[in-house]
Each structure stands twice: as structure tokens, then as C-alpha cells.
Design a protein around this nucleic acid. Structure first.
Length: 136
RNA sequence: CGAGCCGGUCGGGCGGCCGCGGCACCGCGAGGUGCUGAGGAAAGUCCGGGCUCCGAAGGGCAGGGUGGUGGGUAACGCCCACCCGGGGUGACCCGCGGGACAGUGCCACAGAGAACAGACCGCCGGUGCUUCGGCGCCGGCAAGGGUGAAACGGUGGUGUAAGAGACCACCAGCGCGGCCGGUGACGGCCGUGGCUCGGCAAACCCCACCCGGAGCAAGGUCAAGAGGGAGGCUCGCCUCCUGCGCAGGCGUUCGAGGACGGCCCGUCCGAGCCUGCGGGUAGACCGCACGAGGCUGCCGGCGACGGCAGUCCUAGAGGGAUGGUCGCCCCCGGUCGCUCGCGACCGGGACAGAACCCGGCUUACAGACCGGCUCGUCUG
RNA sequence: GCCCCGAUAGCCCAACCGGCAGAGGCAGUGGUCUCAAACACCAUCCAGUGUGGGUUCGAAUCCCACUCGGGGCA
């Protein structure tokens, strides 16, 4: 299990991250990344300075309970070593797609890294474009 | 040796590295060390209980469930043994297996007739007619044909105009009586009666027995007392209750409403309650891992199971802990090599993941092992 | 955790207190009409009722177990 401050806890946290975050899809998974800037006052629960928080979504389409939990465990272990590379206060939701059921850990790691890089780039572009309007 | 039946067990093993949950200890802290960490089905949620709250867990009706007998159990719709019926050469297997003389209802089509039935083709006697093939009318009969899932016993004989349990023998079934065995379901034997009476209750129903409701998001503690309100009295202490706004309706002894699940009785609370709309509804801890517990031995019992003694402590999360990777061994399949039994390489090793806890049932499952038994063939 | 529905032709759906092996619409096929098509009309084809078992003479219907799909409450 990830350390408590590094986990998403409530259904609303998942919803907010998926809805507002930058999205990057790969064949095995989809990454949603919400970066909270210093000027963003709308997110009460996430503040800059907190550690990045991660959560996982594995639907029934992936497989039965054994398969879903195995995918979640692999993703969680992979994410644990990558949390340090994320900006403080960020929220990450990783959605596993059905193809991930038969994927190896190496394949999952490749897609996760690729998707994270893409999501980080999109999030930073969005952050660069917005502050002028928000921070006033 | 070949077919097959029944019961049970296991369900990969060892190790290295990087990680995770819980507990204990050390440390100011970061963290470290040690121990420990999924299943036989953890599953489906089809039954039964424990536990908790609702009202003391009361009575009756309704509703639901079960359905051979005896036992096991905390309990069961589960299990064991036996009985009956059916299947199999057999070991064994299958059965929601009470009641159709309490009542109601249904039995399509076909068929003459389908429930205390009926006469289509027929058989027989009498009689009239006759083209001598038969036909009509009256009466008797139900053996044979035919329909159907099912046609009011079966076979053989006596008997008769033809026939019929009309009568006789045996058989099948039913009722009654007696004796014997068994706790019992029931079985066996003997006698006797009328000679014979359909099926469906997984149709309504009747009978016997069982069942109060909700569920760990149960329920409790902290928050939450220096808050608000009511009552009491010894006047500063005790007891009890309590989330907000708006609208409508009902009511305080002629008792609203609630406890109550559908209703009634009974019991209790009772001055506020009901309905609608709107708004609100952080968190932490306990419950929560010692239990109808596992293992071993002895004893009782055909068995399910029970008793006694010893011994062991064995997951406990809260977006939810067992993962990743490598090596050796084991099992299976394939290819190749040969010193003919080994070696090399490749691939594969099921179903499936605890969330309050137990007892069952059902369903899924690669493969391996153990024990008992039956039939057939061969040899001694 | 608790509970309730549904499954019938390629598609949508009747028949559900048992009874002729199953109605209708759309789609498909063939034909009539038309120069040709559309529309309309006529005809035809397509199911063995989700799976397995049971009760019954007989099951889409009743009973049991399972599979899949959908939904509700806390």
C-alpha cells in the first residue's frame, strides 16, 4: 500500500482528477494528471506542498477479481517508484484498459512512463497558458 | 490385465534480490530489527445459526417454508442409518417420498364412451322382406376390432342363443381381522370380503411440524458540554429529552400518533404527531479475530457424531496488504542427440483473492496420490 | 450487505392459473403494379422458447439448480 498522504481516498477525489486533469491514453492504460498550481484556490483538498497522490481504476471489463487485483498491484508498485518525479500536490488516476489483463509488468511500465511524460507535458502547457487569467 | 463403482487427501517445493499489510521491540525523529500474512471453494448468496438493535420477544389470523421413518446437530431445506419405489449382471446410483372415500377444479386432440361411462364396427335370438349377397325392426350382450397417456382387473376354464366374476382355479391390486419381527416407516404369514374402486396436490386445498423484524453501513464510544429545553427537589445538584426552515392536516381523556412487519387481541409510551417540499448529513476508536476452533491419541456408536486427555494460537484492510524478478528441483507435452536410459532446448502447470464469524448446499477446477469394493478374462 | 425483474425468429415483442410444437410487426426472398423504382398488395421464409434436470399423458407455461443481462435499497 502507498503511504497514506500519497493516496486518493474519496470517490469525489477520483472524479475531480479524471474530470479536470490532463489525459494521456496508451493501449494498456489511461493516465489522468491534475497539477495544482499555487494560484489555484478552487481545490481545497489538494494544496501545493503536499506529496503527489495516486489512485487506480480497474473496471470489471479487465477480468475477474484475481486479474483486476493483480493489475492493480503491478500498477501500484510501478507508481510508487515514480511518485518522486511528479510535481507536489498533483493528483494521478491510472485507468487500466482490458488489454492490461495479459500484459507483463515491463509492458505496463513502458506504457505508464510514456503516458506520464505525455500527461506532464500537456499539464504544463495548460498551466503556462492559464495563469495570466487566473492569478490576476 | 481390462472395464467400472464409492470414499478421502493434496492442489507445486526450496532459495536469492527489490517491495507491501499487521503485531512487538528499539529510536527524539527519519527509520531499523524480529515474527507473521488467503481458499477448498475465500465464489454464488440458496438455506441454517451465533452476535447486535428494535418492545418482555407474548397469543391468534394471514403469509412463508418443510414433507417416508428413526437418529445426529446450536440449527437447517444439511448429514447418517434404515424403509418403500425405480434403474443397473454387480459394486452401487436416483427419488420435493404425507393426504385424491373433507371439498372445489382439470383431464386438450382422437374416440361410441373420460368418471359411480358407453355401443361405432361387431356377436346372438326373434321377426319381416329378399335380386339369396344381405337389409330393416324389436330385444339381449360387451368377448373381439378400433381411439387414446389412461377404457372399470389378467390368464385359463365352467357356463350360455351369444355373453358377462354369473361361477371356479391361479395371479395382481384394495379393504378388514389376527399372529409374528421391528423404537418406527414397514415387512412376513394366515384368514376373510366385495369380486375391483383412474390420474393430477412441483392445481386450489387439507393435515402435521417450523418461522417476530432487521442487519456489522447491526450497534456502541469520543467529538459533546461551560450548548438548548423539560421535570423534580433539600436551589445547586440529580434525572430525562433534544438537528433546522416553510406549508398543509389531525389532536391532548370523546386520546392524535407511536412501539408494529399485513391485520386483530393484549401490553406499553403518549402531548405532540403525520404528510409534502427545501436544505444539511468531517473524522477517529471499539465491535474485530479464542472459536459450536485446529491437530493427535483413547473410548462409545453400523454411521452421521459424541465424550475424555494432551497440545497449538493461525490474516484483519478501509480506494482496501501476498506483488515483481531470477535460479534449482518436481510433473506433463514436443523436438533433437545418443552409450537405450539419460541429456539438451522449447512450451505448459487449474479454478480462483478474506472484509462480522461459523455450519451446510450449489457451482468452477490442470493434475497427483491413498483406501475399499464390483464385473469380465487369463493363470495357479 | 440485502432484495427484485427479465431471457421466445436477424430485430421488437404476444401466447404464462399446462393442451393442435407457437400470434403480430419490421427486416429478408419471390411475385403483382411501373418504362424503372418507391409506396401499396399477395405469397413465402425464418423459432423448437437461455442451459441442464424433474413433475405430468403432455411444459414456452409448474418446480429445482445454473448461465447471462438489467434494476432497486442501505
Amino acid at each position: 500500500m502507498l503511504p497514506r498522504p500519497a493516496r486518493l481516498h474519496r470517490s469525489s477525489d477520483f472524479g475531480a482528477t479524471v474530470r479536470t486533469g490532463a489525459r494521456a491514453g496508451r493501449p494498456l492504460l489511461v493516465v489522468h494528471l491534475a497539477v495544482v498550481s499555487a494560484q489555484d484556490s478552487s481545490a481545497h483538498r489538494s494544496r501545493p506542498g503536499d506529496s503527489p497522490r495516486a489512485g487506480f481504476v480497474v473496471s470489471k471489463a479487465v477480468g475477474n477479481s484475481v486479474v483486476r487485483h493483480r493489475v492493480a498491484r503491478r500498477l501500484r508498485h510501478l507508481m510508487a517508484s515514480r511518485l518522486a518525479d511528479l510535481p507536489a500536490g498533483a493528483g494521478v488516476v491510472v485507468r487500466a484498459l482490458p488489454a492490461s489483463a495479459d500484459a507483463s509488468s515491463d509492458a505496463l511500465a513502458a506504457d505508464l512512463d510514456s503516458a506520464l511524460r505525455s500527461a506532464l507535458r500537456k499539464a504544463s502547457e495548460r498551466a503556462d497558458a492559464v495563469p495570466a487569467a487566473v492569478s490576476l
